[in-house]
Design a protein around this nucleic acid. Sequence first.
DNA 1: ATATTGAACGATTGGTTGATTGTTCAGAGC
DNA 2: GCTCTGAACAATCAACCAATCGTTCAATAT
Lengths: 194, 194
Amino acid sequence: MTVLDITREQIIEAGRARFAHYGYAKTTMAELARDCDMSPGNLYRFFAGKLEIAEEICHRASLRTADELASILGGTARSATERLHDFLFMDLRATYHALEKDEKIVEMAQIVTAQRPEFHNEGLLREREVLSKILAMGVQAGEFLVADPDMTAEMIQAATMKFSYPQLFTRLSLEKLERELQGVYEIISRGIKA
Amino acid sequence: MTVLDITREQIIEAGRARFAHYGYAKTTMAELARDCDMSPGNLYRFFAGKLEIAEEICHRASLRTADELASILGGTARSATERLHDFLFMDLRATYHALEKDEKIVEMAQIVTAQRPEFHNEGLLREREVLSKILAMGVQAGEFLVADPDMTAEMIQAATMKFSYPQLFTRLSLEKLERELQGVYEIISRGIKA
DNA sequence: ATATTGAACGATTGGTTGATTGTTCAGAGC
DNA sequence: GCTCTGAACAATCAACCAATCGTTCAATAT
């Protein structure tokens, strides 16, 4: 990790703190610069602009959740059905709590997805790859009967879209969302069983 | 139909035309009054306000789609599985085309649902009742195995949310949406089969 | 008496100006 | 030569005012 990388990290950390606490719009580049003991202009040696800082923060959050989800793939004891269940509920709870902790994170995410639509799709793709693997494991183990795991993963993602960004689409409580997701899971689960 | 009712219809028709063409915000009460050869003040003998006119228009549209969906229940020849397929695709196509014909209808729908959240839920409930009946028919015929059709209807509605208001959530083409819905349908279909 | 009008009122919107903020870059510092 | 600064520029935002619009109601017409 070069000294340049360290500075980058510092900027990202300052951004994460301020964006989460005060929101993207209300955070100024001058403030971020002051946090990092540098001039505003110098920020542009590390990032093309304010949006790119937010993008990097969201990107990392996306990688982190994908990583957490990927942990479901580990171990050998559990069935693919259980893994699918974990996948769906972990996803719901992760985003629900993230959006609940700091209301302002929604703002940042919305701005980034509005300005860079492909960003959102990349995140979905990363998660879908894990889902795909779970399905493939299930096929391997004779639990699932699906011709094309990649395609089925896409379908499951479409069917659980309501639970991916809960607060954006509904005002339901986590309990209600979990009840619904459980029901949707049961249908899907039976729908792909061998 | 009294003369008062006829005037009400006239106002609704004028509203439908203007809201669809110019949008809710850009339509003034004065314009609606002029369309109906009356003064702005007189509109308030028929509706509590501008929003209520839009509400009535949306309400009727909702009733109409529910009616169309209910037509799926008729006849005896077709299987419940086919009816479920028709239900989901009819719903997707109806809203997709409605929103495509006049971009401005989205605006009106958004304003009404923002101001009267219960309105949206009533529409969902109306559709869900049809879905529930389809499921009950399937159970009756031994095609489906579901313990509680009402609950399962709720779950299916949650799983197909992405296809209910297509243009609000994604920018996918109708073809792509139909491909995805077909996949989701197949999983659900297998998931509730007896 | 009832139905209707249209001017009046208050809230909202649209447009304009000045201030703030994101971004650039010539030059200072090392 | 490379890093970094901070003043300068351009884009955006916020505050203001005027115009418009939704709504009301006293007056008018039927």
